[in-house]
Write a protein that binds this DNA or RNA. Structure first.
Lengths: 226, 226
DNA sequence: TAGATTGTTAATCGATTAACAATC
DNA sequence: TAGATTGTTAATCGATTAACAATC
C-alpha cells in the first residue's frame, strides 16, 4: 500500500539496494532476485529487505521474487534519480577538488556545474573542466544553471556563511563536509559528512574491543571466572 | 552509573559534543556549560545531552552545569583519543590524496603513516610528505608502524581484496570510502562513507519537498480542501 | 499440487523526549 | 532559602526481526 511516509532508515538503504540491483542487471543479467539474495548482497537481513520494499508498493511476486529491472526502475523513481541534479561545490581545496573529479556522482545524475571559492590565488583555475568562480557569483550561477544541491567543502569557520548564501540563492539541499554545526531554515535539507567523526567512532569501538580482549586475557591468566 | 554499554546513537554524538566543548574551552574560555547551551551548540535537545552524558558517569553539578575541561577530558578518554591512532590510506587517487592532506585528522591523534597503491605510475610519488608504497608492502609497514586503522579509497572492484589484506595484516578498524558492500570478520570494526549515497538521500528528500509544495500549490489554485 | 517466496503482522528492541525529584 | 540545573524515570516513538498466511 502506498502513501505511508517511507521511514528514514528505509530511505537510507534504498541506494544500497539500487547498487546491488545494478550489479545484477549489468553484470549477470539476472531477471529476478529474491529478498534473501538481495539481502546478502546489501549486507542486511531478508525481512528488512521485504519490509523496506513494501513501502514502495507490492513489486514482488510470491514464489518468484522481484523483477530486477522493474524494481530498479521503481527505486530510481522513488529516490528522484530519473531527473538530473545540478550541483555546485563551494571551497575548492583538496577535498573540493577531489569531489569535483569524483566519477561516482555523474552516474546517478548528479552533475557538478560550478565551483566556487574566495581565494584570488585559485580564481579562474580549471578543475575537472570547470573554472573556479568567485563566491559572489553564486546567486547568478545558481539561477542560470538551476543548481539545486550545494556541497560545502570550506574550512569550518566559513561554513555557516556559505550555507546562508546558498539558502539565499535558492538552494534547498546542502551536503556539508565542513566540521561543526550549520543551521538552515526548516525547509532546507541538509546532511553532514564528517570524516573526523567517523574516525573517532572507529577509535571508540576499537578501544572497546581491545579492552574486552585485555580483560579476557587477564582473567585467563588469573584462572578467574567467566 | 558506569558499565552499561554506551548506546551506538550516543557514541555517534560524543564527537559532536567534543567539538562544541573545544570551542568553549579554546575560544571563550568558559568554565562551565549547561546541557541547554551544549545542546544548542551541538544541534540536539537538552534531554538528549543529559542522557548521553549520563552514560559516561555523573560528571555534572546540579544547579551549575558541566565543567568544560573535565567533561572534555572524560569524552576524550571515553572515545580513546588520549592515544595516537596510526592510519594508512589505500588507493591514492583524488580522494586518497585529499584525505592524506586533510588537516582535521591530525588534531584528534589520527596520524596518516603510509600510503599504498598498485599503480606503477604513481609508485614513489610523494603526497603530504609520504611516499606512495606498493600494496605488497602493506603487511610489513602495518607491523612496523603499528597501524591500526585502514582507509580504503580504491575503486569499488578492489575494495574487498584490500579489506582482506588489511585484515590479514592485522588491522582491526577500517573506514571504507569505496562504493559497495565489503565483508570483514566480526572482530573487525568497519564503517562506510558513501558520498554518492548521501547525495541520493538528499535527492529523495528534495524531491519529496518539491512534491508537497506542488500539491499544496495545486490545491490552492483549485480552491480545494486542506 | 508442492515448493518457493512475498507481504504483513505482532513482538521486541533501542532511541528519544518530557517531566520532575534530587541537589547544588 | 530560592533558583538553577542535573540525573533518572517512564512514556512514546520508530526500527528491527521472526513468523506465517497468502499466493505465485
Amino acid at each position: 500500500m502506498r502513501n505511508r511516509p517511507i521511514p528514514e532508515a528505509t530511505v537510507a538503504r534504498l541506494p544500497i539496494y539500487l547498487r546491488s540491483l545494478l550489479e545484477l542487471a549489468e553484470g549477470r543479467g539476472e531477471m529476478t532476485v529474491s529478498s534473501e539474495d538481495l539481502a546478502r548482497m546489501a549486507g542486511v537481513n531478508a525481512a528488512k529487505v521485504r519490509k523496506d520494499l513494501s513501502y514502495l508498493g507490492s513489486y514482488g511476486t510470491r514464489g518468484v521474487g522481484y523483477d530486477v529491472e522493474y524494481l530498479l526502475y521503481q527505486i530510481t523513481r522513488e529516490l528522484g534519480l530519473t531527473q538530473d541534479w545540478p550541483a555546485a561545490i563551494i571551497g575548492i581545496g583538496n577535498l573540493g577538488r577531489a569531489l569535483a573529479s569524483y566519477k561516482g556522482f555523474t552516474e546517478r545524475g548528479f552533475r557538478i556545474k560550478a565551483l566556487f571559492d574566495v581565494d584570488d590565488a585559485v580564481m579562474g583555475d580549471e578543475v575537472a573542466g570547470l573554472k573556479i568562480q568567485h563566491l559572489d557569483e553564486l546567486k547568478t550561477v545558481v539561477n542560470d544553471e538551476e543548481i539545486t544541491i550545494g556541497m560545502i567543502t570550506t574550512p569550518p569557520a566559513a561554513a555557516q556563511e556559505v550555507a546562508d548564501r546558498l539558502v539565499d540563492a535558492g538552494v534547498r539541499s546542502i551536503l556539508n563536509f565542513a566540521p561543526g554545526v550549520v543551521n538552515v531554515p526548516p525547509d532546507v535539507n541538509i546532511r553532514k559528512v564528517d570524516l573526523s567523526i567517523e574516525l573517532q567512532i572507529l577509535a571508540f569501538y576499537q578501544q572497546r574491543t581491545q579492552a574486552i580482549a585485555a580483560a579476557r586475557e587477564a582473567n585467563r591468566r588469573l584462572g578467574g571466572p567467566r
